[in-house]
Design a protein around this nucleic acid. Structure first.
Lengths: 180, 180
DNA sequence: GGGCGTTGTGCAACTTGTTGCATAAGCGGG
DNA sequence: CCCGCTTATGCAACAAGTTGCACAACGCCC
C-alpha cells in the first residue's frame, strides 16, 4: 500500500492540487509509481479524512474549483515511519516476458508477430532512456551537495540502469530471433 | 489481463492440477508472473466455464480430490491470439525506489534506516541471480536446437540481466550512502 | 481408531487499480 | 451570447489481486 506515501512525498516536495499531482505522477514520480487521477482523488480524500493532509483556501466551491493540499505533521510522521519499514521485493509481473514464453508453446506463427512487438518496446525504452539521460544532464551537475540531492540522483540512476537493461535485453532478443 | 494466458501457457507446457500450478507459479513461471492459489483456482473455474480448458478424470469428489486440467483447442487459439496482441509496457511500480525518494524529503533519520533495507534487498537479488545462473548452467547447454528452447532461454536471460541490474544499482546506492 | 500433519480445493471479504462518465467553472471566438 | 475547449473535481461500477479461513481426503503413527 504505497500510493498514499507516494502522494505524501509529492506533497512534501510541493503542495499541489489533485490535477497537479496527476500531472506530476505522469512525469517524475510516476516513473516508478504510476497512478491515475481517480486513484489520486480518492486517496486525497482518505488522507484528509485521516488528518494527514489539509486543504488550503478551503472556501472554494466544491465543484470546478481547485483545491491545494499540504502535509500535516501526522502525515509527515506516517511517511517517516513507512520509509523505515521493511518490505519484500515483489516479483515482477511482465507481460512481454510472459508473451515470449507463451510464444514458445503457441507455435511458430506466434513468434513472427512478437518480433514486431519487441521492436516497438525497444524504441519506447530507448526514448525513455534518452529522457532520463537528459534529466541527468540538466538537473544533476557535478556538484551534489545536499543529502536529498544525492538520494534523488540515485533514484534517477535506477531509472537509467533499468532502461539500459531493457534496451540491452531487447536488442539481444531481436538479434536471436533474426538468426533463426 | 494476463493471468489466464499465463495459466494456459503453463497448462500447455504440462497439464496440472490447481495446486501443481500454484507450485509452478512459485518457481519458473512466477519469476515473471506471480499468482496466489486463490487467483489460480478462480481463474481455472472461469477458463473451464469458457470452454478453454477441461478437467481430466472429472469423476473425483468435489472436495479434497485433485483435478487435473488440460487445454482445449479454443484455449490454444485464444493464447495464440493474445501472443500476437500489442500492449503498452506498464510503468514500473517499485516501492524501494519510492522509499528512497521519500527518504529524501522525510529527513536524515529516515535515511539511516533505509540503508539496512537496501542491503537486505541486495542479498535477496544476489541469491535470485545465483539461482538463475544455476538454471542457465543446468538447463541450457551449448546446443539449443529448437525454437522453443531458444525462446525460453531468452526469457531466462531477461531474468538474469534484470537481477544484474538490481545488484549493480543496489551496490552503487549503498556505496553512495556510505560515503556521506 | 483417534489425533495430527499434509495435500488439495474453494468461499467470502477486502483492498487496489481501471474505465467511463458527470459536473462545473473559466476563457475565447464568432 | 452561446458554443466549444480546457481545467478541475468527483461518483459509480468494475476488474484484479490479497488475506483469512473453511473443509475434505489421505497417510501415518502411536
Amino acid at each position: 500500500m504505497s500510493l498514499p506515501h507516494a502522494i505524501l512525498t509529492a506533497l512534501l516536495e510541493k503542495p499541489s492540487s489533485g490535477l497537479e499531482l496527476t500531472r506530476r505522477f505522469d512525469r517524475s514520480i510516476g516513473y516508478f509509481w504510476s497512478a491515475t487521477h481517480q486513484q489520486i482523488y480518492r486517496e486525497l480524500g482518505k488522507l484528509e479524512e485521516a488528518g494527514q493532509i489539509r486543504a488550503l483556501r478551503s472556501a472554494e466551491p466544491a465543484r470546478g474549483g481547485k483545491k491545494e493540499y499540504e502535509v500535516l505533521p501526522a502525515g509527515r510522521a506516517e511517511l517517516a515511519e513507512w520509509v523505515g519499514r521493511s518490505e519484500e521485493p515483489k516479483p515482477i509481473r511482465d507481460a512481454l516476458l510472459l508473451r515470449l514464453r507463451a510464444a514458445a508453446v503457441a507455435g511458430p506463427d506466434a513468434v513472427a508477430g512478437i518480433e514486431k512487438e519487441l521492436g516497438r518496446h525497444l524504441a519506447l525504452h530507448e526514448a525513455q532512456l534518452a529522457e532520463y539521460l537528459d534529466m541527468e544532464r540538466r538537473q544533476f551537475g557535478p556538484d551534489q551537495d545536499s543529502e536529498a540531492d544525492r538520494l534523488r540522483y540515485l533514484v534517477l540512476r535506477g531509472g537509467i540502469e533499468l532502461e539500459r537493461f531493457w534496451t540491452g535485453w531487447l536488442t539481444e532478443a531481436l538479434a536471436t530471433l533474426r538468426t533463426r
